[in-house]
Design a protein around this nucleic acid. Sequence first.
DNA 1: AATTGTTATTTGTATAGACAATTATACTAA
DNA 2: TTAGTATAATTGTCTATACAAATAACAATT
Lengths: 369, 369
Amino acid sequence: MIIDRNSPIPQYFQLQRWLVEQLEQGVFKANDKIPTEAELVQMTGLARATIRQAVQNLVNLGYLVRKRKLGTFVLDKAEESENQTIVGMLLPDIRAGYAPELARGAEDEASKNKQSIILCNTDDLFLKAEFHADRLIDNNVAGVIFVPTAASDEKNKYIVEKFTNKNIPVVLADREIPGHSIDLVTTDNFKGAYTLTENLIKQGHKKIAITLSTLFSTERQRLEGYKQALSDNGIKIDSNLIMTHDGLYAEKYYTEIAHKLFKQKKKFTAIFAGHDRIAYLINSVAMDLGIGIPDDISLVGYDDLNPSYHNQLDLSTMHQPIYEMGIESMKLINSRIRGDKSKAKSIVLESHLVERSSVFPIKGEVKKE
Amino acid sequence: MIIDRNSPIPQYFQLQRWLVEQLEQGVFKANDKIPTEAELVQMTGLARATIRQAVQNLVNLGYLVRKRKLGTFVLDKAEESENQTIVGMLLPDIRAGYAPELARGAEDEASKNKQSIILCNTDDLFLKAEFHADRLIDNNVAGVIFVPTAASDEKNKYIVEKFTNKNIPVVLADREIPGHSIDLVTTDNFKGAYTLTENLIKQGHKKIAITLSTLFSTERQRLEGYKQALSDNGIKIDSNLIMTHDGLYAEKYYTEIAHKLFKQKKKFTAIFAGHDRIAYLINSVAMDLGIGIPDDISLVGYDDLNPSYHNQLDLSTMHQPIYEMGIESMKLINSRIRGDKSKAKSIVLESHLVERSSVFPIKGEVKKE
DNA sequence: AATTGTTATTTGTATAGACAATTATACTAA
DNA sequence: TTAGTATAATTGTCTATACAAATAACAATT
C-alpha cells in the first residue's frame, strides 16, 4: 500500500516520498507522464486535493511539470541541474604565480559544460578561506576547487569539511593536505625537484643552494626531492645551503635570503629557487650585486611561469602543466558533482624540465648519460 | 475591495498581488505579523483554502514565514537579497595584461559586501562574450562588469542590451563603446598618451614611432593623444612612424611590426608601444637584433604591469590604476544594483607617468619646464 | 522556584465536490 | 487543403467544513 493512514506522517508527504522514490528508481523516467490526478486518487484512496498538494510540492521542487490537459510529467533533473551549476574556486591570489593560468584552465573546462566559476582570493590565509567558504555555501555551489592555504593541515581540513558536511564535493589543486585523503590534482614535486637537481649535478654542480618556504606541501616535497638527488649522487647535504623560511612569499624575505646567500658565494655554484618568482627575485638581487647569471652562479626555478614576459633571464625551470591542472580539477569535481562516490583520487600530472640558459655547465665535470 | 470576483484573474492571485503590494508599500513591514488566515477570510470573503494558497505562494517566494500558533510574518527581503548577490565579470583573459589586477580589485570590493564574482574569459571575441552573457543571465547575476570585446560597437552594445533588457545593470571597465552612454570606469587615455609623448619630446625626441591596435577605444585614444602632443609641439606627424594594426594582440604581429620598425631605425629615436606587453616584446626583438634600449632607441609602454617581474627592462610607462578600476567598477555596479537610476556616469581615474630608465634623454635637446 | 498541566490560538492536514480553463484530437465546413 | 468547431481529458481554481498539531500563555501543583 502506498499510504499508511495510521502513520503520523502526513499523507500528502507519504505520497510525495513515494513519488520521489518512483522517480529515483526510474519507474517514471524523464519526460514520462505520471498517473493523472484521478488515477492517483484511485490508487491511493486520498482526496484529489491531497494528491495535488503532494504533486504541487514536487513541481515546486523541480521534479515535475504539469501541463494542462496533458498530464504531469517528469523533468529531466540532469538536464536542468547538472548544467548551470556554479563551482567555487579558492586560490591564493588571482594576480600571482600560477593562479591566472589555473583559473583559466578551470574556466575553459567549465564553459564547455555551461558551468560558471566563482573566484575567491584567499591570500593563503585561513580566515579569508573560511569567509569565502561560507559565501560559496550560501551561493549553493555544486563543488569547490581549493588550493589549500598556508595554515595548518587541520585548518585546511576544517575548510574542506565545511563543504563536505553539506555534501559539496571538494577537489584540492596543486597542494595536498597530508594525512587526509581528499581528491587531488597535482604534479609530482618530489620527482620534479629530483630531476631538476640531478640535472644540475650532471652539469657539474655539487654545491647547490636551495631556498623555499616550508609552509606548502609542494615546496616541502621539492626539498625532499633535492635532498634525495644529492644523496643518490653521493653528495653530502650541507644545511648551510638550505635556506627555508616558514612565511608566505614576500619579496622582502627572499631579498634578504638572496643577500645572505650571495655573501657566502664561494660555497656554492648553483641555486635552486623554490619557484620561479623566487628565481626572478634572486636574479634581480644578483644583478644589483653585479653577480652574473649564469656566468657566476647558475639558477633554476620551478613552475615555468609566462616565460615570454621576462625572457631576459631565460630561466631553466621545471615546467608544470598548470593550465591542464585547472582542466583536470574541473573534470574531477564534475565527476563528483555527477555523483561519483568512489574513493578519493590523486591525479598526478607530468612535469618536464625546460633547459634554458640560466645554468652554466661546469667544464670537465659534465657527466654523460 | 481587495478581491474582484468578476475578474478573470484567479482570486488567490489577486490576494497574492494585494499582499505583495502591502509589503512593498510598507503597510506590513519586516518582521510584522500579517493578518491571520481567519482575519483574511473576513476581510476578503474568500475560503480559507484560497487564502492559504495565496499565502503559501508568498512563503515559497520568500516573502513570508509561517509560524505555528504565532501567525505569518514578513521576511526582511533586503537582508536576504541585497547581499549575497553575484556579479558577473566579462574580461578578455584572466591570464593576460591587466585582467588579474582588475579582477582582484573587483573581488576585494565584492568581498566587503559579501558578494561573489563569476569570472568569464571572452578572449575579446563577440561570440564568447555572448555565450557567457547568456550563462550569467541564467545564473541571475545582479550586475555585470564588462570589458568590451574587439568586435564592433554595435555588437558590444548588443551584449550590453542582453543584460539591460533583463534589468541587469552593466558597467564598462577600461574600454568604452563610443556613441553609447553606458556607465564606465576608465582612465584618460588621451591625456595619458599626451603626457607620455610630451615627456619624450621634452627629453629631446622628435621622431617617435608608435605601434598599437585600432580595435580598442583605449588604444585609439592613445593614438590621438600622441598626435596632439606632436602637433602642439610643432612636430609633423609622420605616417611612416605610425604602425597600427586592426587585429587582436598577438606576439606574431608585433614581432613583425618590430622588425619592420627596426629596419628603418635611423628614422626615429623612440618608440611608443601601445601597451606594456607590446613594449616588452619590442624589447626582446631589439635584444635579438643587438639593438640597445635605451642606448640605441628609447621605449615607453602603457599600463605599468607588474614591474617587479621583468625589471630587467625597467620600462618607462604610464601607470594605470587598474586595481582601483576594479574597485570603482564594483562600487558603481553596486550603486546600480541598489537601485540608483541616475543617468550614466563616467568615472575617469588618474594615470601618472612612471619614469624609469628605458628612455634616453638626447643631449642638448632636453627642454626645461 | 520549578515543574507540570490546561487552554486558546493559529497554522497544518484532509475531504468531497463543483465548475473553469486549456488544449490535443477529431470532426466539420468552406 | 485549410480553417474553424466541438469534445473530451486534464489540470486549475474555489468552497465549506473538520479535525490535528504545535505552542505561547497562563494556571495549578509540587
